[in-house]
């Protein structure tokens, strides 16, 4: 069972503002989903290695070369989708450190 404060801290870490009824329905859904994970708890996995990728990948590299692309040829392309920009920078409200 997820507590209110746990849900709040999850929303905080995911940077999603939850309002009123959201909290209730998300809590319900999360609880159901998390409960469905219980079946995994008792599975014996001590000698089983985690599987992050489905193939046995290893050592995929690129060479240390500079490549040109549309962004570094044209700063406007890089900033095209920015909601707020000025003089080549992307802007956010002033951050007080």
């Amino acid at each position: 069972m997820i507590s209110d404060s746990r849900l709040e801290s999850l929303a905080e870490s995911a940077k999603i503002e939850l309002i009123g009824k959201d909290k209730v329905s998300f809590k319900k859904d999360l609880d159901k989903l998390i409960k469905s994970f219980d079946i995994l708890k008792d599975v014996e996995t001590t000698d089983i290695k985690p599987m992050i990728n489905v193939h046995d990948y290893r050592n995929v590299f690129r060479d240390d070369k500079v490549e040109n692309n549309d962004y570094n040829k044209n700063q406007e392309v890089a900033l095209r989708n920015a909601p707020n920009k000025k003089e080549g920078f992307i802007l956010v409200p002033k951050i007080m450190e």
Partner: peptide, 17 residues
């Protein structure tokens, strides 16, 4: 909060959990 729909938010919260 405004950009994502409920399903996306639910999975993000679950993932964070």
């Amino acid at each position: 909060a405004e950009g994502f729909g409920d399903e996306a938010k639910l999975r993000i919260l679950l993932g964070s959990y």
